[in-house]
């Protein structure tokens, strides 16, 4: 078996049959305790909201976002070394998320529909408390798309995507038939797909 990164139990003991951890010259110095996670639970609690929000922003639905979030932690926590800094653990989770997402798209559609910009995401905070009042870059992009649309198109997309209303509810709110609401939604999405990225 190859050398595995050192794992620690939740009690802070070093796993590995009681053997003291051996330092390896190829590993970086152990980060100061204050800048380290104490155990995997702390890693999880500090990062689960962020990873889930990230995945949701990349797949747009809760069941897949939950599956992918689980996948990231299931894959990353076992072999994770906790002697490194919090920043390095977060970066590692992000890289794992990027790989998990890429693999998801490859298998699900055969096309990488969205991807994770690890460097850009690394600058975003971790937990729910860190959510920017405007929702961060993904929310800003969504807002920009909506603002670029004619009123009725914007309204139908807001009802369906932002407020999560059913097509029947949305039709009622707009005073149109269900069939009309579906057509409006379809056309609105088509137009929205043509709104260029910022800076293009």
């Amino acid at each position: 078996m190859r050398d595995r990164p050192m794992a620690e139990t939740s009690g802070g003991e070093v796993a590995g049959g009681g053997e003291a951890p051996r330092l390896r010259p190829d590993l970086r110095a152990v980060a100061p305790a204050a800048d380290r996670y104490a155990d995997w639970r702390e890693v999880y609690d500090d990062n689960v909201v962020r990873i889930h929000r990230l995945m949701y922003a990349k797949v747009g639905n809760r069941p897949d976002a939950e599956d992918l979030t689980a996948e990231v932690f299931l894959a990353a926590l076992g072999p994770m070394r906790l002697s490194v800094s919090r920043g390095e653990v977060r970066a590692y989770l992000l890289r794992t998320a990027g790989t998990v997402l890429a693999s998801f798209w490859r298998r699900r559609l055969g096309v990488e529909v969205t991807s994770i910009d690890v460097d850009a995401e690394a600058s975003v905070g971790t937990g729910a408390a860190d959510i920017a009042p405007d929702g961060g870059p993904n929310a800003r992009r969504a807002r920009r798309i909506l603002d670029a649309l004619p009123d009725r198109y914007r309204r139908v997309l807001e009802l369906r995507f932002v407020e999560g209303r059913s097509v029947r509810d949305s039709a009622e709110a707009m005073g149109v038939t269900v069939a009309n609401a579906k057509v409006l939604q379809h056309r609105a999405l088509r137009l929205a797909a043509t709104v260029p990225e910022e800076g293009r």
């Binding site: 990230l54 949701y56 747009g60 979030t69 969504a142 807002r143 932002v162």
Partner: peptide
């Protein structure tokens, strides 16, 4: 269309916060 729909899902600033039950 899918990419746009996914992007729009994030328009709500609180979008994607996981449920406590899931966590």
């Amino acid at each position: 269309l899918l990419r746009t729909a996914i992007e729009l899902r994030s328009a709500d600033p609180g979008a994607g916060v996981p449920s406590e039950e899931f966590v």
